[in-house]
Design a binder for these strands. Sequence first.
DNA 1: TCAATTGTTCAATAATCGTTGAACATAGGA
DNA 2: TCCTATGTTCAACGATTATTGAACAATTGA
Lengths: 123, 123
Amino acid sequence: MSRTPLHPTREQIELPMVLDCLSDPIRLAIVYQLAAQERVSSELCCGDFSGLGGKSNLAYHFAKLRECGLMQTRVAGTNRFMRLRREDLDARFPGLLDAVIGSAAKDAERLHLLSEGDVVEAD
Amino acid sequence: MSRTPLHPTREQIELPMVLDCLSDPIRLAIVYQLAAQERVSSELCCGDFSGLGGKSNLAYHFAKLRECGLMQTRVAGTNRFMRLRREDLDARFPGLLDAVIGSAAKDAERLHLLSEGDVVEAD
DNA sequence: TCAATTGTTCAATAATCGTTGAACATAGGA
DNA sequence: TCCTATGTTCAACGATTATTGAACAATTGA
């Protein structure tokens, strides 16, 4: 297991890869949940997303989200803490992340996204 | 050949399908070109995109863009005139289209998008 | 009427994608 | 030390995808 997963630099983040990543309902739900969490602690670990699928399937989607630059993973013990790369994304694609998250929020029910109260408590 | 291609209603437009559509470089280039054209005549026909690929491949991407609600096709003689469904998209997903097009513009060279001067003359 | 133009549809291909379960690696606690 | 918990990696699969060329349909103009 690699100790620190690889992440693209800010400049390496590509628009088509980001859009493709966000087009998957599970990955969109992950990003949405991370965005909702930003107001509390900004980080979540893999287990916090267990409502979205099985472990190996989530690991697959986490890898996609890392590779395209949407999120960053920090290893701490047996946990992986993940957060949105908001600064990098806002710098590369101003307004895009907020527009996607806002659009997802409008369709939260249709997209089966978590409701506002479901944020995980800060550690 | 169906006389008038099917389009989803405004409410039927789904965020994941829109993002997936925009994640393909050729389709992103088509949307970008349509957006650049909005200032001039708002409509383009299939032949205006011949720089982006072969006829049958473009027809495939046009169908995708129609099915997800990004653009509308109007049949006129042997031509199909296409335009962005900006009103519907802005109503469903405020700011999304502009954020994507703005992000694409920032990466125009990397994405091999047409330059500002390449708009087709109004008819 | 015949030929040319415009664009779609069809069939086939290779490549990629999402999902699953089993196996593995790592760290922490009894 | 052994057991457990947390995630990742691997191999397999079925499904979808983008691309190509050939065939087709509809309209226009000679």
